[in-house]
Structures are given as structure tokens and as C-alpha cells.
Nucleic acid binder design. Structure first.
Lengths: 338, 338
DNA sequence: TTGAAAGCGCTAACAT
DNA sequence: ATGTTAGCGCTTTCAA
């Protein structure tokens, strides 16, 4: 078998199999419309010629791209990169390729991606950035481009959506802390406008209310999701007349920051104070002490969202427009009973 | 301004501007070939019609896709996701889109992506997985598809390449340990076949040799880059007749594992033993103690590789085929002077 | 079940 | 500097 000079086209396959190009096309796209015998002949010819479909031609003809755009606020964020993997797997299984757009949290960039979508380069969009695309971008030929949002719910949007059941999970973690005997529980919030923060905080309050435990507003501090914010908060807690028994930070990075801050001040965790986080990031289990936290299946979130989008792009009916994946409390070494 | 029913095509713009489609095409692709006056008229018509180029049509016509495929062993790995960001930025700047293929370290998947490349879906390939693509995939029409490898060098390949100067950096770290007064220095290796491991280990040996310090083979252990491997290695070091003064782990995860293992055994770091890592992963600075390590600019690696690929795709001459980015030792709290 | 043929929207060679 | 026009390779209607 020697190397072909020119890339085989559908016509070459047709000639070799003794059929028309239409039959080759059908064999490849919808094999059951073709007689088995013909099909075999075509497949044989495909193998012999080494034919590979020219995607650009198909895309032009069908005006579809078999590609999906994922809009991320930050591709270098470990959280998103794990979600991405679930997306990538699922799309790949369904014959779609994944194009990523890292907006770097910059609205200007989001606008740039508008042309991308309008240019017909993608058949569907996955929004992970908690924000809608600029309006013209979301449309093409006056139609909405199939879109699914995930991770961060988009306020006021009715897009199909997939996320972790943040409120329920935060409630479960708080109940865990309560069960350990803690009553004087602090909560370290995220940025005020953040949707995740809002849900998790609500879950925290739910649990306290259900247990009849009064919430001490002094024990509720805020940060911006970073380790540094956690360290700063530790200082603030230390300045309080009395330290809480436990603190639930609404993400792992801040929980780690709290542990750092307390440890540096000679307050050992969990002996003097229990700390819990949320996310179960990669190094949570390796931290010293290993972090009690809420584990989310980030890959699953991506996979489910991608599957929904595929349905949408194919015009299938959606079983449900809103998926909330449950997350489980993982007890490790940063919390203990009073 | 009301919504157009049908998506405007190049002909609509041409009609509106009173020129031919060729002129519109030229105005958009190479504005300087068109008289300023004509150009302005065309641009005005573009704006008025809301015209957006149909990429599929252009791709078919020009047989280029303006897309680049990044082949990753694991998109959920924080290291790669940061490299990805540099890639994404740079490609975007040059008008290319980024398609990602997560091979999950699975050769079968790598093969699947062959059709992708042969199908003409991408103009260039970025290999981050330390492996060549299956041979037919790397060609199209008998020509090589422009390809750049990065991060992990591919043994025996002459592809243009970008990586961290691992050997030099490992040497610098070892010199740092020596300067701190350590003489009894252990080294925790990665998997035997790994290229990074090989280079870093060589750098370690370079430094010892240059300092005239004998390498004690007992102090050289191996692991598989994971935290668990580091913990296991700590146990093994503990079983030795004498503990080393310092251990250089060839990546951060193993360094963290060592710290965990020693801490759990009551050996405090850095009081009883100094530990150094390599990579400066996100949580290295937040670890307790904060990890002394080697910092690589992962974004830069991606950006440089992407820039090289763009040159290659455009047929420009490459200034250099091999870029080795220097990495710096970051001294934090897990090492101290004897 | 299969074939013939039109045409998706654009670019570039060639002509003016 | 600009216009005319022939395809790029495929899918899909329509006809057989």
C-alpha cells in the first residue's frame, strides 16, 4: 500500500465502490438507508482509499459545525478544568468537538466571541461563567443558538441549567457540624453578589434554623474566595471576644486560609476550632489537617450539561431543564466533636 | 433598525455597497488592496447589514480552518489547564480558535483524534502529552500538519518545542539546599520513563557533582508523582538508619506527601528535615509549611508554543525551534538552614 | 434503494 | 483597483 498523492474525496470512494457519491454519503451518515451489500462495498472502498470526510464541506452544506463553544471565566481554574473534562468526554462521544473561549472574566472578550457564534462556527454554547452572552451573539438567523448554563446559575435566565445542589449541601455540612456538638458556629461568606455564596449561605441558615440554634451575626464574616481572604478572616475571628467552636467557609480556599491563619497564631485545628470547607478541591485531602468539605462531582456536572446540549442541538425534547446534582459531605481531619 | 429575516451573505453587502463580492472579500481579508473610499463604503455596508463571515464557506474554499488542536493527557490537571490559558490567549489574538482533545492518557483516544486532523478540522497541533500522534494523523495530503510540542519533550522527535529548563532549575534548587548547609540530601524521583523526571534528576546530580558532594544512593527513592507516593516515601525514609537533612522531591505533590508523612510521624518540617518541591502548583504557597519549590510560568510556556505554531502555520521562518524557559527557585518555609 | 445534479457562501485566478 | 466566474467537497431533493 503506497501513499496517495491527493486526499481522497467522496467521488473517489464512489468510483471505487461502483456507486454514486450520494450513496457513499448516505452510507456514512445513515447506514440503514443503504442496502447492507452496498454498504459493505462502500465501507471497503472507504478503507482502501483512506477516505476521511472533509468537515468544512459538510459544514458548509449542512450549515452546522458539529462544534460546541464552552465559555469559561478562567480556564486555568482547577474547578472549571475538571468540569471541562466531563464536557469534553461527552461531546466527543457524540461526535462534537469542543472549542474553548476563556473570557478571563472580561466582558470585552465575551463580546469578541459573539462573531464566533454568529459566524456559525458552533452549534451550541455552554456557559460556565454565570453570565449571559451579549444578546446578538446568542442568536443566529434570528434563532437562539442552543445554550446550556452550568455551575453558576444565571440570574433571571431560563436557560437549561446544571449545577450542584449548593443549598442542600451547605445545609448538610452545617448539620454535620451541629451533630458534632458545635453550637457557636461561624460562617465565612463569599462575595455578596455571588450566586453560589447566596445558596450556600442560605443552606447554612436553614440548618441552624431547623436545629433551633441562634445565628450570631458577629460570627459571619466575608471574603473573596481566596486563601488570603481566609487568612485575613482568621485574624478577624481572633479579634472577637470569643472564638467560635467551628467555622464553615463557603469554599475550600478560604477554609485553608483560615487554617493557615489559626495555625500561625498557635490555634491548632481541629483541637481548638473545627474548620469545614466546600468544593473538595484537589489538595483538600492532602492539607494538614485534611479538610472536611463538600465534594462535588465536577466531571458529572460537565457531562450532564453536555448531554443536555446535545439533546437540544438535535432537537430532542429535554427530560428536564434543570438538573441539580447532589453533593456529599466528606468528613476528614479539620473538624472534630466538642 | 429591524431584524433581518435571513442571514446576510457577502452578496448582500456587495449589492448594498455597489461593488462586487470580490471587493467585499478583499476588504475584509486584505484591506490595503482596496482603495480607502471603496473600503469605507464596504465597511459601512457590512455594518448596516450586520454581515458576519460564514466560516464554513471560507474554510472550504481556502482549505484552512483557523483552528488549532491541543492534545492533552489530562485537561483536569491544573498544570495543563494553566498552560492552556496561555495557549488560548495567544491563539485568540491571532484569530485562531482552540479545540481541545483530552486523551485521558489513552492511546485509543489519540487514534480517534487522527480523523479529526485528517478531516482538515485544524490547521495546527499542539502536543502536550509527550507523545507523537499516530503517524497518519500527523499528515494531511501527504504534508505534515504544523505541530509544536510543549511541556514534555517527545523523545526522538525533532518537532519545534517549548519547555521549562528542568535540568538547570533542578540544579539551582539543589544548589539552594547545599547553600543552606545540607549535605545529606535525598531525592525523590518520578516514574523511570518520564522525561521531566530524567532532566530534573540529572540537574540534581549536576549540582552535587559540582559541589563535590557524594550522592548516597540509599537516599534516592521513587514515586509516581502523587501525594500518596510522597507519603509512602516518607515511611521509607523513616525506615532508613539515618534520615537525610533535606529531600528534594521532583514535583510538588510528592513534596506535599513527604511533608504529610513526616508530620504524621512527628517529624516536623522544616525543623527536623527540609523538603523542596518542583512546579509551584497553586496550593504550594498555602501549604503548611509553605513549600519551597521551583516556579514555572505555565502560561508563558503555552503562549510561546502557540506563537511558534502560528508562525509555522503562516509559513514564517522560526527564530528558534527549541525554547527552554528558565524557572526560578522560590524559597518558602519548608526548607531552612542547618 | 440508488443516481443525477444543484448549490451551500466564499475566495482567488484571471480579465479588465 | 475592481469585476467575473469557477469551483472547494459535500448533502439532499427529486427522479428513476
Amino acid at each position: 500500500m503506497h501513499k496517495p498523492i491527493r486526499k481522497p474525496r467522496i467521488g473517489d470512494v464512489a468510483a471505487r465502490a461502483g456507486v454514486s457519491t450520494a450513496t457513499v454519503s448516505r452510507t456514512l451518515a445513515s447506514p440503514d438507508q443503504v442496502r447492507p451489500k452496498t454498504r459493505d462495498a462502500v465501507m471497503k472502498a472507504v478503507r482502501e482509499t483512506g477516505y476521511v470526510l472533509n468537515v468544512a464541506a459538510r459544514n458548509l452544506r449542512t450549515s452546522r459545525s458539529h462544534a460546541v463553544l464552552a465559555v469559561l471565566p478562567d480556564a486555568s481554574n482547577i474547578f472549571f478544568s475538571q468540569v471541562l473534562r466531563g464536557i469534553s468526554d461527552t461531546l466527543h462521544q457524540h461526535g462534537y468537538s469542543l472549542v474553548i473561549a476563556d473570557t478571563a472574566n472580561d466582558p470585552a472578550r465575551e463580546r469578541e466571541h459573539a462573531a464566533f457564534i454568529q459566524g456559525g462556527r458552533v452549534d451550541g454554547v455552554l456557559l460556565l461563567n454565570g453570565r449571559l452572552l451579549p444578546s446578538p451573539a446568542a442568536k443566529r438567523n434570528g434563532h437562539r443558538v442552543p445554550t446550556v448554563s452550568l455551575c453558576e446559575r444565571i440570574p433571571g435566565s431560563r436557560l437549561p441549567h446544571v449545577e450542584t445542589a449548593n443549598r442542600e449541601a451547605a445545609r448538610a455540612m452545617t448539620e454535620h457540624l451541629l451533630k458534632l456538638g458545635h453550637r457557636h458556629i461561624g460562617y465565612l461568606r463569599g462575595p455578596a453578589a455571588n450566586v453560589l455564596e447566596h445558596d450556600r449561605h442560605a443552606g447554612f441558615c436553614d440548618a441552624l434554623a431547623a436545629a433551633g440554634v441562634a445565628l450570631d451575626p458577629q460570627l459571619v464574616l466575608s471574603g473573596d474566595f481566596t486563601i488570603a481572604a481566609g487568612e485575613a478572616a482568621a485574624k478577624d475571628y481572633l479579634a472577637l471576644p470569643q472564638l467560635p467552636d467551628a467555622i464553615f467557609a463557603c469554599n475550600d480556599a478560604m477554609a485553608m486560609g483560615l487554617i493557615r491563619g489559626f495555625t500561625a497564631a498557635g490555634i491548632t485545628v481541629p483541637d481548638r476550632i473545627s474548620i469545614a470547607g466546600f468544593d473538595d478541591i484537589e489538595f483538600a485531602a492532602a492539607y494538614i489537617p485534611a479538610l472536611t468539605t463538600v465534594h462535588q462531582s465536577r466531571g458529572d456536572i460537565g457531562a450532564r450539561a453536555a448531554a443536555m446540549l446535545v439533546d437540544l442541538m438535535r432537537g430532542n425534547k429535554l427530560a428536564s431543564r434543570d438538573i441539580r446534582l447532589s453533593a456529599e459531605v466528606v468528613m476528614r481531619d479539620s473538624t472534630r466533636a466538642v
